[in-house]
Design a protein around this nucleic acid. Structure first.
Lengths: 410, 410
DNA sequence: ATCTTATTCTCGACGCTCGAAATAATTAAT
DNA sequence: ATTAATTATTTCGAGCGTCGAGAATAAGAT
């Protein structure tokens, strides 16, 4: 439902524009800011004056190495004030949890990392685990923690309707608890759960300027298969954000048994356990391994690269599952780029022939051409980036852009 | 890219709200309008005064049968002025073309209907055909045609990037021509091509008030299989609107030959020609029939309903293709309703067991539940409705909402 | 006629953007 | 050193659209 627009909305929108310009381009002069946002110089002056007054922005002393000094009044750049806020970012994976404290400028202040054994959250309640580590971060950085404005969590699985917890997760023991409300209660700030797949896509766009305007999907291939979509405009996927259950899209009716208990999911062919199962000729209806050692998967890739028949065949099947999955997705969405990330990215060369074949055999690709498929090795960086930028932009737009001007007092 | 917001934007947005309220609820009093839009009475007075002055709105004389007259100043309802504009709507199907002239209130003024033989547009240039009939409409209704503001066309197939024409269409001979620009040139109004699949979904939402807030997908099953999505917010599918190539989503790698030339499309199993091919045990790699007589398809439904084995089997395969298609779609989107329309809607009973089975076997349905699947017999009504409402709302928001106030002169 | 009541209109204030003109802070030229 | 030129930023007043409060309007009720 569209809402009434008034001068409040105008302020929020245009301040949002200023934040967004500074967030993407870094510190800018007022003149650049006017050009970037499309606002007039007069408005930029008014807006930045307010924001400086509220300590959301700060003057950036120009580097003295100003070689190409122009004539005229020197421009002074202003940027986001790092000390305006702090955020806690939490990444929960199957085998690792990472807690980061960052400031409003996106600088890492402190970090706690914990390796998790499979089934860890069956023993230990996730909420307590999280609270404890957040408290530690708070004790170690009391000043910054006082400025805490958001807790953002990256998770895998399916969120419940309100986004308070998970209804299902590949991380055993994580689903079924209310996570966000108790944390909000305890730390007094909004808590957001984000799907890792989408963050990956968002983060990838932030990290590569060439992709800033791309409509891209990322496909994580590793212990699971997960997809995320991201584009500069709004993107819809499941649950109105850009996260999907791609890995559990059916590939073959009644096919291989997946960790989720269903048969024929893409994941059952393309995740590490699926590839290993095929490679070792284990019947495809056999229960999947709970966890695959990274070394075993790496080893299989090496064997396939050296021409081992069964290993090659396993990656062919994986590529076929992913390829048809993408082809089917293309019937309802049209990304410009497809990026394969995670451990499986190293095997893209092995899977590519089958992926390409599947795409070539699809009607939409024949008519509209094929999106660019590429690999990206490290997924940890983009996920963190996506989580952080998502939270920062949310803070910009939701908390700071609406702030009314502090009227000047005599 | 988000744009600067100023008082112009405010006016456009809020006027858009007024149009939208009147468009969905019919004539309203100023007080109701204020409640519906959230604007203050003062603003509604100002806005409606302008719009009345520009003859976009008009007083609706209250029905004298005002039984329950309240005390106080009687409220006077205002509604959209039918005579403010006219629109030409064109629906092009495989076997029929329909040209309608409607007014700003959505009332049909005149209509030309033509049956098409297969391959008609190979003989006759589509553009000339369209121009000729539009000209006829203009001659028959000169007064209304003078108010023409839009030409909106419903087509099947894949639009080119600019939306000027089609790159592919199941209507032979229709693709490959520039259609919109010459029409704009000749008639001096914007011309929009809309994908039939999406219009169907939009129109269905307009026709059934219960579905007004649903996230729905419609699947047309007949001579083709086509899907559209529609929801109250923005919906993204292929090409950023809610239209997709669902019918050409792969169902079985290297499967039955589709009219599009690809193998294994859903359509190759579920469109009329696919079902007939299966029912008559024609090899699935045989070239599809160019057109299936409606009677032949009806007949097959009757035979299946009477228990004929091969006929039943054909509809089972069709249901399976559609069911897995929906299940795969659900991995990346989450509609609340799935509506089967077109000739195939009569066969939903025959296909439903396989559709339900496919959904039940999917992971997402097990976790999130199954969307409601229902049939809708007539597809012509919702397509026309969707085409009309789409064009009217576009006219409201694009042309009329931005109109500045006519400043009062002494 | 007068009172009551619901609807609509009028008026002044407020908040925001904008263009134009003024001011500020430099370098280049004299 | 002073002045001119140049670029960046601020100030000022106008314009526009919303809003709340109170006034005007047009009935029914008494």
């Amino acid at each position: 439902m569209r809402l009434v627009t008034d001068s409040d909305t105008v302020r929020r929108q245009n301040r949002g524009l200023v934040f967004s310009a500074l967030r993407t381009a870094g510190p800018l002069t007022r003149t650049q800011l006017a050009a970037e946002t499309g606002l007039s110089n007069a408005s930029i002056t008014a807006i930045t004056q307010d924001m400086l007054g509220q300590a959301l922005l700060t003057d950036v002393p120009d580097e003295p190495s100003a070689e190409l000094r122009l004539r005229g009044r020197p421009a002074v750049r202003i940027g986001l004030n790092r000390h305006a806020a702090a955020l806690a970012l939490i990444e929960i994976d199957v085998n690792r949890a990472r807690f980061s404290l960052v400031d409003y400028g996106g600088t890492l202040i402190d970090r706690i990392e914990t390796n998790l054994i499979p089934g860890f959250f069956i023993q230990t309640a996730p909420l307590g685990f999280i609270e404890e580590r957040l408290a530690t971060l708070g004790q170690r950085n009391p000043l910054e923690f006082a400025m805490l404005r958001r807790i953002a969590i990256s998770v895998q699985g399916i969120l419940d309707r309100e986004g308070d917890g998970l209804t299902w997760s590949p991380v055993a023991g994580l689903a079924g608890h209310d996570i966000a409300p108790p944390l909000t209660e305890r730390f007094g700030v909004p808590v957001v759960l984000n799907k890792r797949g989408r963050l990956l896509a968002e983060g990838t766009r932030w990290l590569d300027p060439d992709l800033r305007d791309a409509r891209l999907i990322t496909i994580f291939v590793g212990s699971t298969v997960a997809m995320g979509m991201s584009a500069s405009g709004p993107v819809l996927g499941r649950g109105e954000d850009g996260a999907t259950e791609f890995g559990h899209m059916n590939h073959v009716p009644n096919g291989a048994l997946c960790r989720c208990g269903t048969r024929g999911c893409i994941e059952a062919y393309a995740a590490d356990y699926g590839v290993l199962r095929t490679a070792y000729s284990v019947p495809e209806h056999t229960a999947p391994a709970a966890q695959v050692p990274a070394a075993a998967y790496e080893d299989l890739i090496r064997r396939a690269q050296q021409g081992d028949r069964t290993a090659t065949q396993a990656f062919n099947l994986a590529g076929r599952a992913i390829g048809y999955g993408i082809a089917r997705l293309l019937a309802v969405s049209d990304p410009s780029h497809v990026i394969i990330v995670g451990p499986g990215a190293r095997a893209l060369g092995l899977m590519r022939p089958e992926i390409d074949a599947a795409l070539a055999a699809s009607f939409v690709c024949r008519v509209n051409g094929t999106p660019e498929v590429r690999a990206l090795r490290d997924e940890s960086e983009p996920i963190f980036m996506g989580l952080m930028m998502e939270a920062l932009v949310d803070l910009d737009q939701t908390d700071f852009a609406p702030l009314a001007a502090v009227s000047a007092r005599a």
